[in-house]
Amino acid sequence: MERFSRDADSDIRWCALRDRRLSTASVIRMLDDPHHGVRDQAAADPRLSTRVLTTLLHNAATALAAAANPAIPETVMHHLLDR
């Protein structure tokens, strides 16, 4: 699956993110993908750490996609909602 995460076709890279065997390091690398759909899918990936998610949530370019991440801790979500 790792090799598909580097494919020239953005649809193949997007599909690679759907595979749970893909490494977290590859998911993080794909946060800088040239295709916005791949970047958004990577930002919403539950394999990301709280630290990475917090960084993404504070970046206007990635905040919306990161807010859809099911791995956001409840305390972080409450902090966002209470703003």
Rank of each mutant, 00 (worst) to 15 (best):
V27M: 05
A68H: 12
A63V: 04
T24Q: 13
R21H: 10
V52N: 01
A66Q: 09
N59F: 05
R13S: 11
A65W: 05
L31P: 00
M77P: 00
S26L: 12
L53C: 15
M1T: 05
R13D: 06
D33L: 05
H35F: 11
P34R: 05
S5T: 02
L80V: 02
V38K: 06
A65P: 05
A44W: 02
G37L: 11
R13Y: 04
N59I: 09
R13P: 01
C15K: 07
L56G: 09
L80I: 06
A67F: 09
E74I: 06
R3H: 11
R47P: 00
D19A: 04
L57T: 02
F4C: 05
P46L: 04
A71V: 03
I28R: 09
D45L: 08
M30W: 06
C15P: 00
M77Y: 12
L17Q: 01
S49Y: 05
A44M: 08
R18Q: 14
A61F: 07
L17S: 06
V27Y: 02
D7N: 14
T62I: 03
S26H: 10
D7H: 14
D45Q: 07
P73Y: 04
H79W: 14
A60F: 08
E2A: 10
N59G: 11
D9K: 02
T24M: 09
T54E: 15
H78K: 15
R47M: 13
S49M: 06
M30T: 01
A16D: 08
R47I: 03
L22H: 06
Q41V: 03
L56V: 02
P34G: 14
